[in-house]
């Protein structure tokens, strides 16, 4: 066999070739800046913080309108670490429980929708109706029905985060090349293997985009639930702090919330990267 795999349309290896062939010639500064990891976004964030600090100080913006970052940092100190941990844990727990329930519910629904057009015709309109209900408006009702512990908060989180999962999973399960399904059928294999060995792995890129959207939605869901009824959690803390006019610590809570959301998003991204690298577009592997 003399054929060598044609790399021109598969592996993007020009950077290696450039290093080996002409090490002295540097690409333009602008390109090097773009390629340096974390440099440009980091600088942007720093610049925003500096501008924020100087402008709020220069114009003496009242703290309740927009506290400068330094005051927000002080706001972190206004509350004990144990209290922060309690709030973060509470929000994290509800968000994760709601997320897991959303995954557990949407996968069977998606499999059902992918397998049967009959079921799609019956169920899909119902799902759209559920998705169209403004969850914030239903939240008080859910709390009256389910009480004041975690259950109603988990349900609210679930309601906010499950729809993108159903849609992405169903789309993914339907995206399998029909020939592979025919191959599966021509082998007379057990029907479930069509899903475990073909459809679900094929759907993973879609499933992961759903998982990424839903993880941030589940944090939003937890916060919405806490706004309505809670005695702990970052959402509760922000609402409580603003009602006491303690804006810097409300902002501190908001920052933690963003950090939590980003962290969870990163975890999902890393799981995809480590376990299913082929499910990512080539240039991001």
């Amino acid at each position: 066999m003399t054929a060598i795999p044609d790399t021109s349309d598969t592996a993007p290896a020009p950077s290696k070739a450039a290093q080996a062939g002409a090490p002295q010639i540097k690409p333009p500064l602008r390109e090097r800046l773009i390629e340096t990891p974390a440099l440009l976004p980091g600088l942007t964030f720093l610049l925003v913080l500096i501008l924020w600090e100087t402008l709020t100080r220069a114009f003496q913006v009242p703290t309740y309108v927009l506290p400068p970052p330094s005051r927000i940092v002080e706001g972190f100190g206004a509350v004990s670490f144990a209290r922060w941990a309690e709030h973060v844990w509470s929000t994290f727990r509800v968000a994760m429980l709601g997320y897991v329930v959303a995954i557990a519910v949407s996968l069977p629904i998606a499999i059902g929708l992918a397998k049967s057009r009959f079921l799609t015709r019956c169920l899909y309109p119902l799902l759209v109706v559920i998705q169209s209900v403004p969850v914030v408006a239903v939240a008080p009702i859910i709390i009256v029905v389910l009480g004041t512990d975690d259950a109603p908060r988990v349900v609210i989180t679930f309601m906010i985060s499950f729809f993108p999962l159903v849609v992405s999973m169903t789309t993914g399960l339907m995206a399998t090349p029909p020939e592979l399904i025919e191959l599966s059928r021509s082998l007379n294999a057990p029907a479930y293997r069509e899903f475990t060995q073909i459809r679900i792995p094929y759907a993973l890129p879609y499933i992961f985009s759903g998982l990424k959207i839903s993880i941030t939605l589940s944090v939003i869901g937890a916060v919405v639930a806490e706004f309505v009824a809670a005695d702990a959690g970052l959402g509760y803390f922000i609402q409580f702090s603003t009602s006491m006019f303690k804006l810097p610590q409300a902002w501190a809570g908001l920052f933690l919330l963003v950090a939590l959301s980003l962290l969870l998003f990163q975890i999902v991204t890393q799981i995809q990267k480590r376990l299913f690298p082929w499910s990512l577009p080539k240039e991001t592997r």
């Binding site: 090349p177 020939e179 592979l180 025919e182 191959l183 599966s184 021509s186 082998l187 007379n188 294999a189 293997r193 060995q197 073909i198 792995p201 094929y202 299913f276 082929w278 499910s279």
Partner: peptide, 25 residues
């Protein structure tokens, strides 16, 4: 059956793709 497109499993190695009929059944 050989299809118009190779229709291989992109996550499985060449060998895994060839033994797929057995793995699947």
């Amino acid at each position: 059956i050989v299809f118009q497109q190779p229709t291989l499993l992109p996550w499985a190695s060449v060998e895994e793709n060839v033994v797929f009929p057995v793995k699947h059944t």
